[in-house]
Design a protein around this nucleic acid. Structure first.
Lengths: 102, 102
DNA sequence: ACCTTATTTCCAGTAATATAGAAATAGTTA
DNA sequence: TAACTATTTCTATATTACTGGAAATAAGGT
């Protein structure tokens, strides 16, 4: 049950990170662009965010495993981690919802 | 699209509230006891939390609509809001996941 | 009115978060 | 190397969060 609590801690950490409007917008944007991802600059332009603010948010998403960053030349491509997101949703369905939930 | 952003704000607020380990434990407990709910004191005993801390967390859950409180005599019965939780999960599935997501 | 149980409010301290301008670094190309 | 674009790090400020002890309030029973 120590292990189970570690899972809860991780889930809580991820929810917390998504629980900021700006960051949720960033993550939703990454989801929308799909598996090909988008460079930081594009996210910055399309969401009108200051660079330093955006960097902060993206790093936090990466820290909890909800996004990845990979350099492609000059640009840093960001992608949502769909697997992690699905796992997060599954946890909520399994542990924080009624059995008959859908 | 202003309306859409209000929805995102609400979702973010709910995620943030669930994004605290103690609070997530409280919410999960309320989910587990089901629709009949549990008095504050029982939550306090079973999760070993100081009263003032627990009150704080429950109030935050209520504030974002994820839980309810109703007095039954001396006790205050807390219940998870399953409808709200299902709506939250649906948002994540619809807006923050791939189309083919399960 | 008093006593007991249940829960909240008040308060304080400590820590974490969000934000963003300015300076610094990384990579590419000339 | 110089110049250019892309992105991060540094730094600061203001706001908010988490925690829990002690005192206050609520409800019901005697």
């Amino acid at each position: 049950m120590i292990k189970k609590d570690m899972k809860l801690e991780k889930i809580a950490a991820q929810l917390k990170i998504l629980g900021n409007p700006t960051r949720l917008r960033v993550f939703r944007f990454l989801v929308r662009v799909g598996t090909k991802g988008a460079p930081v600059g594009r996210v910055q332009r399309e969401l009108s965010l200051p660079g330093s603010t955006l960097t902060n948010h993206i790093q936090r998403l990466v820290n909890v495993g909800l996004a990845r960053q990979e350099r492609k030349g000059v640009e840093l491509i960001c992608t949502a981690n769909f697997t992690a997101m699905r796992a997060l949703i599954s946890y909520l369905e399994d542990e924080c919802c009624l059995e008959e939930c859908d």
